[in-house]
Amino acid sequence: MPLKNFAVINHPVRMRIFQALNGVELSINQLAKVLPDVPKPSLYRHIHKLLDAGVIHVARMRLVNGIEERFFTANEGLIDPADVYQPGGLEQFADHVRLYGTSVAQELADYVLKRGDPDLNNIAARDHVFYATEEEFKHVREAIYELLQTMETLPPAEGRIKRRIFIMGHPLQAAEMVESAETNAD
């Protein structure tokens, strides 16, 4: 489901809630344990905004002592290209990328700190820089996506834990600037 409203998701707490619900189902009580610095009344308020915007949905419900407990999960976070080309959309998209990437990096840092060691066999934090044409880059991107989509279909099993890989790929501005300056100097 494409994201229709950057203003809803481009909020530090709502982004953290969205990412906590990415690929898992959590109740408000479970979410409060994952985000202990966010008061429960704030969680309820942000959950309702995310629900109203269609960014998350109720995955299932159960009765606990006669009270309905709802479990939430994130909807696929695709960006609607039409949103990017609206007035102010490009800036909101840039804010979204910045906030999303920062949130993912913070989650990795929190994991490392909680464990007390970097656990290098269970994390991936690498930056690869390479030359590629648009077509070559598209091929690499699609191969990675295809492999990850295959991994997403694997069911839970002994020794399998839910993992996240966040991939960002773009031309390097600094390299473009240097190469442009060198070309103009010739």
Results as ranks from 00 to 15, higher is better:
L3R: 06
I56P: 07
R115A: 07
F6W: 09
L31R: 08
D83R: 13
E176P: 00
M1E: 08
I161E: 15
L35Q: 04
H57P: 01
S103L: 03
E69P: 03
A94C: 02
T102H: 15
A124M: 11
V140F: 14
F166N: 08
D52I: 03
V112A: 09
A125T: 03
M168D: 06
L154P: 00
G89W: 13
H96I: 00
A174K: 07
L99M: 13
D52H: 11
T150H: 08
G101A: 11
G88P: 11
I165Y: 06
D127V: 07
L43E: 07
Y100P: 01
L51Y: 09
R70G: 07
I161F: 07
H96K: 01
E176W: 02
Y44W: 07
K33W: 00
A124P: 00
L113C: 05
H170M: 12
P171L: 08
G88N: 14
R164N: 06
M15Q: 08
A125G: 00
G54V: 08
I67T: 14
N122E: 10
L78F: 14
I123D: 01
V84D: 07
H11A: 10
A7N: 09
G89T: 04
V38T: 14
I79P: 08
E135F: 12
L108D: 05
V64W: 08
I9W: 09
M151F: 02
A53K: 06
V129D: 01
Y111V: 05
E107I: 00
P118H: 11
R115E: 12
Q19W: 03
A7L: 08
H46L: 02
E68F: 01
I123G: 01
Q30K: 06
L43V: 09
M1N: 06
P156R: 09
R115H: 12
G66M: 04
F137Y: 13
F166K: 03
P36K: 10
G116Y: 02
K4M: 09
M15F: 05
P39I: 03
F71I: 05
N65K: 15
G101L: 12
Y44F: 12
A20R: 11
A143D: 12
D186K: 15
I28S: 11
L154Y: 01
Q149W: 10
T73M: 15
T102A: 14
R163M: 09
H48C: 01
A185Q: 13
K49M: 04
N22E: 11
N29F: 06
I144S: 03
A32V: 04
A174M: 08
N22C: 09
T73A: 15
F6N: 07
P155V: 03
P2Q: 02
G23T: 07
I17W: 05
I47V: 15
E182W: 13
K4L: 12
V38Y: 04
I167P: 02
E182V: 13
N10M: 02
A82W: 02
Y85A: 12
L50A: 05
I47L: 10
F166M: 01
G101Y: 09
L50M: 08
